[in-house]
């Protein structure tokens, strides 16, 4: 099996300058009843996006036609709370390929990476500049280069490096799948089990 490859993503952004966006906001629990991975994008940010009568709330960024693109830019500590992978599925299903923030919760970061959604952790200063640039001009673009581990604000040329572990980077660049990798280690796993039973 393989996952979608990620190399360079150049796109306009959707700004969400809110801190501590938890996975209950990204996808509320009442929408976790599906038994497949598809279709969660419809309910992405459901309660911020729609009122109780299911009408779009005009002040929420996803309902603002000025903003579009494949990069979600959010305040620090994005993806905190529940381990629901549905949050990563919803963001990806909606059409985002990367999330830029100054800090990510651990489980969300793993879940995103396991679905070809790139979490790009930048400095507070760079994040503030991106928000400012997008506020000034909704057409401002970011370029995310995974191989170089670098994100560029194209309107000003400013860049910021980001971290990703070498294994995950290789997986994303090549579309490799974790389970294939683990299955290739079956001999070592079986040998490990023998040492445990003997102890």
């Amino acid at each position: 099996m393989s996952i979608e490859k990620f190399n360079i993503l150049e796109s306009t952004c959707v700004p969400l300058p809110v801190e501590n966006v938890d996975t209950d906001q990204i996808i509320p629990a009442r929408f976790l009843k599906a038994t497949s991975r598809e279709g969660f994008g419809e309910n992405l940010f459901r309660d911020w996006r729609y009122d109780k009568d299911n009408n779009p709330k005009p002040d929420f960024v996803l309902n603002n036609s000025q903003y579009s693109g494949q990069i979600l830019v959010a305040g620090k500590n994005f993806g905190s709370g529940s381990s629901r992978e549905h949050a990563a599925w919803a963001i990806f299903d909606y059409g985002f390929g990367a999330v830029v923030s100054s800090f990510f919760a651990d489980i969300f970061k793993n879940n995103a990476l396991n679905n070809g959604l790139l979490p790009v952790q930048v400095t507070e200063e760079f994040l503030a500049k991106v928000f400012e640039a997008v506020k000034k001009d909704a057409a401002a673009k970011l370029k995310i280069d995974l191989k170089k581990q670098e994100v560029t604000l194209l309107s000003t040329g400013e860049t910021c490096d980001f971290e990703i572990n070498g294994y995950k980077k290789t997986c994303l660049l090549n579309g490799y799948d974790d389970i294939d990798f683990l299955l290739s280690k079956k001999d070592k796993i079986l040998a490990f089990e023998l040492t445990q039973n003997g102890s």
């Binding site: 381990s83 992978e85 549905h86 489980i107 793993n110 879940n111 396991n114 974790d178 389970i179 683990l182």
Partner: peptide, 9 residues
């Protein structure tokens, strides 16, 4: 806690 892809792992 882990995500569903990790449950599959």
């Amino acid at each position: 806690g882990i995500g569903t892809s990790e449950v599959e792992m």
